[in-house]
Simulated assay, not measured.
Amino acid sequence: MGGGSLSLEVISIPPNTGDAPKALIVMLHGWGANSQDLAPLSSLLNLPNYQFLFPNAPFPHSHSSTGRAWYELMNERSGEGLPESRKMLLDWLQSLEKTTNVPLSRTILSGFSQGGAMTLDIGLTLPFAGLVSMSGYLHPNLNFVGKNSFPPTLIIHGRNDEVVPLAAAINAKETLESMGVAVQYHEFNMGHEIQPPTIELFRNFVTQMIPD
């Protein structure tokens, strides 16, 4: 995909208290969107002491001049770019403690759609406070052999999702539970979208995982 050098541009929204962040929330956008897509959630979640980080996927989207992709989908090259995005995100996420002074144990990794899939792919390998997958799915052939400790995970999905079928969320839930992951699972009568009840669940999960 793409070609040339890859970079990870990030929108950073600091706490609106003016103080150092008490915790971090990282949000990964979906296929064809970009880092600006989820940025409005930083105010809707009403967590004034948190710093929000919205990375831009490294690859241009094949059908949108402004869209980005974590890897190719929907054609014979599906999955191309995943190893590169995985390594780039891992390196960046592991650098956050040094650049923000906030440990991963006080960081929530989250994502929507393809970003939700990347969240589960990478997040289960690192000691985050928690993971949030919205309208996401689980990559096939993930291997966590030998790992027996995972971040608590919130999975939210729409029953009427025509982009990522509900069955994908159910599969993720059952697979993660079989691995010993503490999963909170919620379905809503919605499509491939984020609605107010989703935001409320997200906020409640964050405040459970990161106490004052």
Rank of each mutant, 00 (worst) to 15 (best):
G18F: 10
G180P: 04
R68F: 06
M118W: 06
L89P: 11
M179G: 02
S62P: 11
T66K: 09
Q51D: 07
Y137T: 07
V181F: 10
S110H: 01
T119Q: 09
V132Q: 00
E72V: 15
A20R: 11
I13Q: 14
A20W: 03
E193G: 10
V163N: 14
D212N: 10
S105D: 10
L166Y: 09
A20S: 14
M1L: 14
N16I: 15
Y71C: 15
V181Q: 06
P55I: 07
G2Q: 13
S133G: 10
L131R: 01
I13V: 14
A172W: 05
S64M: 02
L126D: 02
T107H: 03
W70E: 04
P140L: 12
T119C: 14
T207V: 00
M1V: 15
P165S: 11
D37L: 07
L109M: 03
P165N: 04
L120Q: 00
P165L: 12
M118Q: 04
Y71G: 06
L176Y: 03
I13P: 01
L109R: 00
V164C: 02
V10A: 05
D19V: 05
M1N: 08
N204Y: 04
H139V: 02
E177C: 08
Y137V: 04
R77A: 15
N160Y: 11
L126G: 06
E76D: 15
A69H: 05
R77G: 14
D91Y: 09
R77F: 14
L104V: 03
L41E: 11
Y50E: 03
N204C: 08
N171P: 02
V164I: 07
D161P: 06
E177I: 03
Y185R: 00
A69V: 09
P197W: 13
R86Y: 10
V183S: 06
E193F: 05
S135W: 06
N49G: 12
W70L: 08
Y50I: 01
A168Q: 15
N189H: 09
R159M: 15
L120K: 00
L109D: 00
M190P: 11
I170H: 12
S178Y: 01
L131H: 01
L126R: 01
L45K: 01
M27K: 00
A117W: 08
N141E: 15
N75Y: 09
I108P: 10
P151W: 00
M74D: 12
V163D: 14
N34P: 04
R86N: 11
